[in-house]
Design a protein around this nucleic acid. Structure first.
Length: 492
RNA sequence: GGCGACAUAGCCAAGUGGUAAGGCCGAGGUCUGCAAAACCUCUAUCCCCGGUCCGAUUCCGGGUGUCGCCUCCA
């Protein structure tokens, strides 16, 4: 298949054609979390986004290498440890566990590696040493080491800032031991009560920024394809990563080739952030909504657009997703009915022929949408288009309105596969129904008994009993639907 | 103060130089004991003012509004 994949590169502020560093391979570094808190829905957005991107590349036939770090040595973690009379290790491990719990619920595939700062000290220290040796960094008397932004004449190229412009609005207290107000710490000398590691500059720990450079270079080499995260990381985090990485390598075209940044999730149209306190953790939302719904909610908007989180919005996502789920179930049951060999094939023409051609077209347009900077919003729209076609076909089929040929039976399997292919990239409907296969048929048998009793009631036009059974089951989480093809039940 | 993004129907949200996907909600209809699901039909000239163009919602300029970054933050 010939295609052109375009991605919006923050570095150039334009959509560019994607050309991998290595033919047939894609290397991705996504900035992970600082595990001092359970992840909130805003944290989840980039991880779900990148999960779709890597699924997409994999589907396109690329060999994908995906790295995501944990910044487990950090001021906030240390602060939390002190507050709780605990250790940085305990705090970070607990929150990393929480991270995986949340992301697993959102059906986010695991990265190939999850490097941690605490496990990357040698690489971090040698990188700082390189910067000192080359004259890009300097040490203070107390043992701090700073990066000198003035030595990097390309500093500011990602965020589009000039050092002079930034000074004007700097409201922070300037540390006058630094050569330039924007110089940032590569290494922080140890203070009492803090974890520290030995280094050529004395005991201390890495500053923020250097760890991501060291970890990405360690796992992906000096030149790799993608680097991403939330757009609040553009400055200073990613700007600084670029500066220190390219200066240490000595090549202004090294490091990540494409920079992708997520828009924010807002609450009442204000940025959600841990520091502002207006956030919802994924764990909390999971108490009320399935992970699949949360995931779908995140993907219904393009990754670069802002996204407002609210109860109404997530409810709407749930309703919409159910619509797709109904079609997913419908096509699956049609296919299994055909496979069960209980239908008669005919050799005549059938009335729903065009679903086959249409579904191929829809699949193509789905890929076109994804090729355009991973436009999941548009791509999901295509799934709804296919859902409508499937519903029409399945209604006709189950209603006995169409006859199918043996040839059609192959084609309808293809329709099911197309829907499944799109679902897989978006990352929904992958979990097998626990009700159908898992429980050794007991629930199945019980349901048959109940439905049979209710059928008797209905036959006797005893609507009170029939409706009571349906209502009570609904309360218990079992939905009954009387369809022209018989009673269907599902567990919510 | 510097830099940037966005402004599309009741709501959410794609998109295009030639009068605008999809979803939710709502109205009517088909089906149905009722309900559900599903299907059909209906609901926008794209913030305002200029400019370029045969033609702009889409390009350029100005304005207004909202948000973000410049400090930890996905």
């Amino acid at each position: 298949m010939i295609y052109l994949l375009k991605v919006y590169n923050t570095m150039t502020r334009t959509k560019e054609e994607f050309k991998p560093v290595k033919e047939g391979e894609v290397s991705i570094y996504c900035c992970g979390v600082t595990p001092y808190n359970p992840p909130h829905i805003g944290n989840a957005r980039p991880f779900v986004t990148w999960d779709v991107i890597r699924r997409y590349f994999a589907k396109r036939g690329y060999k994908v290498k995906y790295i995501q770090n944990f910044t487990d040595v950090d001021d906030k973690i240390i602060a939390a440890a002190n507050r709780e009379f605990s250790t940085w290790k305990e705090i970070s491990e607990r929150n990393i566990k929480s991270y995986f719990y949340s992301m697993d619920a959102l059906n986010v595939r695991h990265a190939d590696f999850y490097p941690k700062v605490s496990e990357t000290m040698p690489e971090i220290i040698s990188m700082i040493q390189k910067l000192v040796d080359k004259g890009f960094a300097y040490k203070l008397d107390n043992g701090d080491v700073y990066f000198s932004v003035e030595k990097d004449n390309e500093y500011g190229k990602l965020s589009g800032r000039k050092l002079d412009d930034m000074q004007a609005g700097a409201r922070i207290e300037v540390d006058d031991r630094k050569n330039h107000p924007m110089d940032f710490a590569l290494w922080k000398a140890a203070k009492s009560g803090e974890p520290s590691w030995e280094s050529p500059w004395g005991a201390g720990r890495p500053g923020w920024h250097i760890e991501c450079s060291a970890m990405s270079l360690k796992f992906l080499g000096e030149k790799f394809d993608f680097h991403g995260g939330g757009s609040d990381l553009i400055f200073p985090h990613h700007e600084n990563e670029i500066a220190q990485s390219q200066c240490s390598i000595g090549d202004s075209h090294s490091f990540a080739q494409y920079w992708l940044h997520n828009g924010f999730i807002t609450i009442d149209n204000e940025k959600m952030s841990k520091s502002a306190g207006n956030f919802f953790t994924v764990e909390d939302i999971l108490k009320k909504y399935p992970g699949e719904v949360i995931r779908f909610f995140l993907l219904q908007t393009h990754y670069r657009s802002p996204l407002n989180f609210s109860e109404d919005a997530i409810k709407e996502a749930q309703t919409s997703l159910q619509r797709l789920k109904n079609s997913h179930d419908a096509i699956n049951s049609v296919v299994s009915k055909i496979a069960s060999d209980k239908i008669e094939f005919s050799s005549g023409e059938n009335s729903s022929e065009n679903i086959f051609a249409k579904s191929e077209e829809i699949l193509k347009s789905f890929y076109v949408a994804m090729d355009d900077d991973f436009n999941t919003a548009l791509a999901i729209g295509k799934m709804f288009d296919l859902a409508r076609e499937i519903n029409i076909y399945c209604n006709d089929f189950m209603g006995g309105k169409i006859s199918i040929t043996t040839d059609d039976s192959q084609k309808i399997v293809r329709v099911k596969e197309i829907f499944a292919e799109m679902s897989e990239i978006i990352g929904i409907f992958e979990r097998e129904e626990k009700s159908a296969a898992g429980n050794s048929g007991l629930v199945e048998k019980l349901m048959n008994v109940i439905i049979s009793i209710r059928a008797d009631a209905r036959a006797a036009k005893n609507w009170t009993v029939a409706d009571k059974i349906r209502d009570e089951l609904k309360k218990a989480g079992v939905t009954l639907e009387d369809t022209p093809q018989g009673v269907k039940w599902s567990i919510k």
